[in-house]
Design a protein around this nucleic acid. Sequence first.
DNA 1: CCTGATTTGTAATTTAAGTACATTATTTTT
DNA 2: AAAAATAATGTACTTAAATTACAAATCAGG
Lengths: 308, 308
Amino acid sequence: MTESDRTQTELPNRGQAAVADLISALERVDGQLAAREQRVADYVKANIDSISTMTIAELAGAADVSTPTVIRFCRSLGCDGFKEFKLRLAQNLAVSLQYIQADVGEEPANVENALDHVLAAIYATTNVMRKQLDPRQLEGAKAAIIGCKQLLVAGMGGGSSVLAQEGANRFFRLGITTMAVNDSYILQMRAATLRPDDTLLLFSASGETDAIVAAAKVAGAYGARTICISKPGTRLADVVSIPIVVDLPEDPHIFKPTATRYAFLAILDAIAMSVAYETRDETTENLRRIRSSLTAYHGRTGPQPLGD
Amino acid sequence: MTESDRTQTELPNRGQAAVADLISALERVDGQLAAREQRVADYVKANIDSISTMTIAELAGAADVSTPTVIRFCRSLGCDGFKEFKLRLAQNLAVSLQYIQADVGEEPANVENALDHVLAAIYATTNVMRKQLDPRQLEGAKAAIIGCKQLLVAGMGGGSSVLAQEGANRFFRLGITTMAVNDSYILQMRAATLRPDDTLLLFSASGETDAIVAAAKVAGAYGARTICISKPGTRLADVVSIPIVVDLPEDPHIFKPTATRYAFLAILDAIAMSVAYETRDETTENLRRIRSSLTAYHGRTGPQPLGD
DNA sequence: CCTGATTTGTAATTTAAGTACATTATTTTT
DNA sequence: AAAAATAATGTACTTAAATTACAAATCAGG
């Protein structure tokens, strides 16, 4: 078996689109690499910001391996070669260098510091998200929501249930009949009553929550359109009709809040905004009514966002 | 005069540290380049995102100049050569100048476009927020939450009530007795039962919601510490003991979702993260328990964030 | 319309990336 | 426990890209 055969067969979907975020790819393969490749990985992680300017020979020398090993390492990470690896690393670092270093380094001494960690994570995560998203799926989601008779939004567990709530909140304002659910039994029942012109929107960071996957299956079986905002290659992603999926770098540190929420929220906002523009005539009327009802209620005016 | 002499004398401060931002360097030299170099500049500006993957020969061919001309162009921009030029360009672009330059223009034609609007707003808003925040108030909030016997979190209306929910969610994980409220009557009652060692955390984008302001007053009267995440110069900001306030630019366009939510969420995350670090011993135990209960429930493992 | 400076391209050189294949470890099978 | 198969790794070579030297062409000012 020649070198090129091997990479073709064993890493079929490498290349440009395979991995958008090298840092998380690095985390993912960590520990399951061949011994020498792992050495390269260790060196890269320890000197992450100087890699982009090194030659393959320098890196090989520094990690004390041969140059082909470095190339194999790059391929294991889903890159086409060393050049692509360097380029992608540079792009990733331009955004998240601060974030990575902070993580390796010390814990936040004060709240201001913590805020910088949070912002850096938001920045890095949304950037990665932006690059991974498939525009066609987004358009599909928009269409499925605009056309629907009823939109059911669900998410389980802290983060996702809050997102579901927010989703219902947004679409309701656009005049769409919407409801958020975060009780697994109610979700199951509601999902079973959906019809072909209804849409189910599911949030799940893990993509493996049983209740959510089950709901998607049931709703799909009854012909409803199902959308998920989740992770690729998960049970949920496989079972819905419109998967909006991104593989985001999760900070392994348990104290850090997950930045995935921000990315998902941004996706939701983008879809909602598009839907609003597409249906702007009815929407405007709806928003006007909501605003005037609020004004009547507490007399506030001005360019405030709706609600609080 | 040889080639190397010339670059040495005429462009003395080229190299790594000379130019941080290639895009602006490109603007600066625009128009004062030699004819063929200008052609390269024009091509680069028109195809800026594909340059990083081109070879020097390709770029030379596309701009219809010779390869040395391309190198000279790179040097005119302060780079050491084509390689450095490509690298720096890639880094610059990764930081998505499209967002920084903002002014994303007209209404979004598609969802992808809407997403850019959303991201631009997030970046702009969080940036402004970061600059306005008073670190002392953040520290005050942290202290008030760490020391408290009970934390009551509240917000009214779509956005803020979701934030309150999320707040309760976060702090509960840290072992703090927490509850979120979004019913104005219940809030009023609960606020009235707070004691000096309790803390009330309020979210309000407007800072003028009656129920929230009233709750702050009552809780304060009974000696509880009151924190708000809101807007400066509002009734709410004036009445709480620890005002965390930022005046954020709101997009007047009614279809755009408010980016304030992201800024507030980031503040919440930062405080929660700080609290987590400060109380890390008890917190770790708590998170461990939560994790193992979840694992027992659905058997999932790995570096997943807690909950979903 | 010449002279010196500047710009630009051709061709050669140097450097880096990538490949084929042999060698060495490691596992699996008998 | 030895043999066979498989995987991991390095050496030496090939290919491709970046860079340099130098010569030709162009241009500005007298």
